[in-house]
Design a protein around this nucleic acid. Sequence first.
DNA 1: CAGAATCCACAACGATACTG
DNA 2: CAGTATCGTTGTGGATTCTG
Lengths: 138, 138
Amino acid sequence: MSVGHIAVTTPAPAEPVISCETPQEECGVRDVLDRLGDKWSVYVVVELAAGVHRFRQLQRAVPGISQRMLTLTVRRLERDGLVKRTVYATVPAQVEYELTAMGHSMTHLIKALADWSIDHRGAIADARRSWDAEHEAP
Amino acid sequence: MSVGHIAVTTPAPAEPVISCETPQEECGVRDVLDRLGDKWSVYVVVELAAGVHRFRQLQRAVPGISQRMLTLTVRRLERDGLVKRTVYATVPAQVEYELTAMGHSMTHLIKALADWSIDHRGAIADARRSWDAEHEAP
DNA sequence: CAGAATCCACAACGATACTG
DNA sequence: CAGTATCGTTGTGGATTCTG
């Protein structure tokens, strides 16, 4: 366990698991989860992991995203230092997006997430079905 | 790379990175992210990773959560098969929550997330500061 | 104790229209 | 092409009240 701020997989006695200095600060975990939790960031990062993209190219690569949401998403990722944005002063305008080193380091995390999801999607779907079956309107 | 559905850390040529059968289905990754992305699930799971909790005990352990949100959160986790809920027919009522095997398997993921967050929280904060400095109102 | 139910505020998202 | 601006809808979460 590299960092050890969180003790997991220990069905042991009940002790505080997060031992941040200030629990309210949430250890900065929230900062990451907010980015991962919004609807599009993960897909944009995954797409950019494949290489540099221009705006439209990125929008086409992420099916269903509106240009407003793409703008907001890449802005946030840029602000967090995960994505680098390069503007070329051409006509018409041209902008390229690529992951920073930190952005690339996060793709490992996303891959782990995706792997776990794929491995357990069936079990989760089954759990939901049986839960729904037991809790339907009487 | 265990599963290989996602190619990461490869700043290589632009190729589709997610190779789901149906991209719209989102590979079930959304299912996990929706759970991880909401405001409280992670903290509840982390808390339950330490052992069995009763409702009030859990609420006290997760500072700031309302009982409505705790109810909703544990219900969703239960529905997904990540948490097991046991009701004891005592007076007053008593309910115990604990992670299932699948729930425990997810704590590895959360730990990886937390480690990454802690390792990069400083860099992210710096990136945000400099971004904000460059984009303040003229 | 463990919750269900209700009401309300706000943020997130989508669709559309317009601009350099 | 790469956005910005505005509007309307939906979803999420908090506070409060009530119940077995």
